[in-house]
């Protein structure tokens, strides 16, 4: 499996990358390449030019800025996994990152690359959606921000304009009253999930005051299960509220069939994950 031929430019500035994006017929940005290279090898895409942004040091780094943790688009998964800042400030991401691919891929794959590929079964888009992260993007009109909840449009489709580049993600720092849950089902550790769930909750005593349930692998994009959340918000977790939340998933999710699972199995697994994670979150709260 060899790609079609392509031109290749390693850029030294964001401006140079944007100029090339505007000038080329069919350009593609490459960073770590851990998703793009297989896509090219299988000839699912045939870009005229690869624009390598891997050398742009301004896109690196993980940094706490007040209430947000800013993760550069070129931060590698291995860096995120090893980061004490991530572990402390964004525990949901710390839990999710070990499920992202395999060690050799985590050494090169980037945070921004995973976000921009927008694979519906990927962990990082779901974490960003669950937390209400914000993306900084750079284009011909300069910098702008896009909320994560408006960024993921469909399978491999995002709100990025053709001449825009993701620069960084801003993830809200966790508050003491927040609880998080993460679980996915995959046939092999490190593979894309069949179905997964990232949860952010804020508890008031035993009541769920706020609840964001982001499923991945269960729809053509990461999806907040709002009907399921409404079945629990303002209430304690009981058998009844739990069952109501699971039943509501039918209205929230649009599971697709592929070689790994059919739609019915995905919906069932989503319910299993929802029950487990709600119980974990409610249980933790009771122990305090």
């Amino acid at each position: 499996m060899k790609p079609y031929p392509f031109e290749y430019t390693r850029v030294s500035s964001l401006e140079e990358a944007v100029t090339l994006l505007q000038r080329e017929d069919e350009p593609r940005i490459i960073a770590g390449g851990q998703s793009l290279v297989p896509i090219l090898a299988m000839r699912l895409a045939a870009p005229s030019r690869l624009i390598d942004i891997g050398g742009l040091s301004a896109l690196r780094g993980i940094e706490r800025r007040g209430d947000v943790l800013r993760i550069g688009a070129l931060a590698r998964h291995a860096e995120v996994m090893a980061s004490a800042e991530v572990a402390e400030a964004v525990p949901l991401l710390a839990r999710a990152i070990s499920h992202v691919a395999h060690p050799a891929v985590r050494n090169r794959g980037t945070f921004g690359g995973s976000v921009c590929l927008a694979d519906p079964a990927a962990e990082l888009p779901a974490v960003c959606t669950a937390l209400g992260a914000t993306f900084e993007v750079f284009g011909s009109d300069g910098l702008r921000t896009i909320p994560a909840r408006e960024f993921f449009l469909d399978i491999y489709e995002t709100a990025l304009a053709p001449d825009e580049i993701l620069v960084a993600a801003q993830l809200p720092v966790a508050c003491p009253k927040e609880r998080f849950g993460f679980e996915e089902i995959a046939r092999r550790h490190g593979d894309f999930a069949i179905v997964g769930l990232a949860v952010r909750a804020r508890m008031e005593g035993t009541l769920f005051a706020e609840l964001d349930l982001c499923f991945f692998g269960a729809s053509p994009r990461p999806v907040l299960a709002q009907n399921a959340a409404r079945a629990v918000i303002g209430q304690e977790l009981t058998d009844e509220t739990q069952q109501a939340a699971v039943s509501a998933l039918t209205a929230d999710l649009d599971p697709q069939e592929d070689a790994q699972a059919d739609a019915e199995m995905r919906l069932h697994l989503a319910g299993v994950l929802l029950k487990r994670r709600l119980a974990e979150i409610a249980g933790k709260e009771r122990q305090q």
Binding site: M1, K2, Y8, G33, Q34, V37, P38, A41, M42, L50, A78, H102, P103, A104, V105, N107, R108
Partner: peptide, 23 residues
């Protein structure tokens, strides 16, 4: 040849990497 099997693993700048996933 598409980053699944791991047989082409090498070290690049000290970090294990799949050499079929790097041009």
């Amino acid at each position: 040849e598409h980053g699944v099997c791991g047989a082409c693993t090498v070290r690049i700048d000290g970090a294990i990497t799949r050499s079929c996933l790097v041009f």
